[in-house]
Design a binder for these strands. Structure first.
Lengths: 156, 156
DNA sequence: GCAATAAATATTGTGCACAATTAAGTTGTG
DNA sequence: CACAACTTAATTGTGCACAATATTTATTGC
């Protein structure tokens, strides 16, 4: 039972704090797993996008990553430089439009995908939570994101 | 191939990404409201704790804030210094135990609470989301946090 | 053709998070 | 008492986020 407080400013009544704390708790769970891959959490997300797009036969620009992850160049440029220094990807300015930088996986970046395959399972293992509950929560969060970003209702 | 990919590494299948994106989307919504108070989002959370504890007649140490927000001194020390420079609170090392720093609201910090009262309502206004859905989501996130932090089942 | 505008990325500066270390103070034990 | 173990906060260093601005290149209007 919740010690009821109608105070709109009570920390426990803030959905924002629940979101903030949950996000950090999940990230903390990921950290040791991603450490083994030599990735930070945002770097892992960027790699997910690159793996996904390469499988779909798509090339990827910095702006594609930005759109997908909702991050700007101020975040992505240094992040991609670090991944590039680790030899996981290349950053190449396009010749036909020199404003554009194309990001491509190296062989090493491609190989990392195999090791990453085990991360999602390892994350959940040991957690007492039903998969369908996670799916429902994920959908609820996606709906919330759509509402927050002011998009119209869609079928996603 | 399939639109609903069951690829465990697909970005849209990651609960972590939904959480990450939702948290940033909410924070972005807060930003203009908190700007008017001269607070960042984590600073706002710290103030919520201080307002709450003062109303309960409790004094607050740095470690109390850390426990409540799950933040360490590396985050809190500079954050509290900034709030102190703005005159919202004082940081004082206790004389009976000089390891401890006590954080106390100033009159200005206390007054800010009135203005903050309107933030939660303003945040939701314009958003097409039912309050009970938010309450359910909040509870689901709290459950998730408890599971992730490995705490035993509690009554909250 | 060329100025004005737009687009794509990079840079700079501020403020978190968090790991690792340090420093100072307190407590428990022989 | 001495001194190790522990507690609390501060410091240092790395890596995001994000606003604001800069830089370079393309496109558009005339």
């Amino acid at each position: 039972m919740e010690l009821e407080s109608d105070d709109v400013l009570a920390l426990d009544n803030q959905i924002c704090f629940a979101l903030y704390a949950a996000n950090r708790a999940v990230t903390a769970r990921y950290r040791p797993l991603l450490d083994e891959l030599g990735l930070t959490y945002p770097q892992y997300l960027a790699m997910l996008v690159l793996w996904e797009r390469e499988q779909a036969g798509l090339t990827t620009r910095v702006s594609d990553l930005g759109q997908r992850l909702r991050l700007d160049s101020g975040t992505l440029t240094p992040l991609l430089k670090r991944l590039s220094e680790r030899g996981l990807l290349t950053r190449e300015r396009q010749s036909q439009d020199e404003r554009v930088v194309t990001v491509a996986l190296t062989e090493s970046g491609r190989r990392l995908r195999e090791r990453a395959q085990e991360v999602p399972e390892q994350l959940l293992c040991g957690l007492e939570i039903e998969p369908e509950r996670l799916v429902a929560l994920r959908q609820e969060l996606k709906d919330m994101i759509r509402i927050l970003e002011g998009a119209a209702a869609s079928s996603d």
